[in-house]
């Protein structure tokens, strides 16, 4: 397993920090990509931050009311070694589904 640290991203408009309002996940929890992980407040707005990836939460940084600077660690995930750092999602092998059926008279000449 590999630990991946996700720093507080630039939330736009040149803001350099954000205040944690409420964590929506906790250490030990498995999260999916795009799942809301934390509510943050900046001087412009309050927003929910989506998870950049799937993984198990190892640590979260900043209690409600704390200020986190852009670029500082916000959350640490644990991911399998073979998916660490990947852009995108490991595809699942699914049973093939079909709607089209073939019909043909095959002349075996």
């Amino acid at each position: 397993m590999t630990e991946l640290t996700f720093p507080l991203p630039d939330l736009g408009e040149g803001l350099i920090e954000a205040t944690v309002l409420e964590w929506l996940v906790e250490p030990g929890q498995q999260v999916e990509r795009n799942q809301a992980i934390v509510e943050l407040e900046t001087s412009k707005s309050a927003l929910e931050l989506p998870s950049p990836q799937a993984g198990k939460v190892v640590r979260i940084h900043g209690a409600p009311g704390d200020t986190v600077n852009v670029g500082e660690p916000l959350i640490v995930f644990e991911v399998p070694d073979d998916t660490a750092g990947i852009v995108g999602t490991v595809p699942k092998d699914e049973a093939p589904k079909r709607r089209v059926r073939l019909s043909a008279v095959l002349d075996e000449d």
Partner: peptide, 9 residues
């Protein structure tokens, strides 16, 4: 096939 952003497929 890995649902990556643009330029990654």
């Amino acid at each position: 096939g890995i649902r990556a952003p643009e330029h990654h497929g």
